[in-house]
Amino acid sequence: MKNKLEEIRRERGITQEELADRLEVSRQTISSLENGRYNPSIMLAFKIAHFFNLSIEEIFFYEGE
């Protein structure tokens, strides 16, 4: 699942570590999310969207099989 997480994070001037602290996840999780190696749970996706004040669809893109 692709996402614009890195782009949005950089726009807001937040580091991976800061974002990880605010979302209470590890920095590696944020890095893996941004690289597309890891898909977040629905809870985490909501947390991220809520943090950036955006909808989930504005951050994550489902591409299908």
Binding site: A20, D21, E24, V25, S26, Q28, T29, S32, Y38, P40, S41, M43, L44
Partner: peptide, 9 residues
Amino acid sequence: AIERNDERN
């Protein structure tokens, strides 16, 4: 605590 509860971990 964060590392222990981290969903990816």
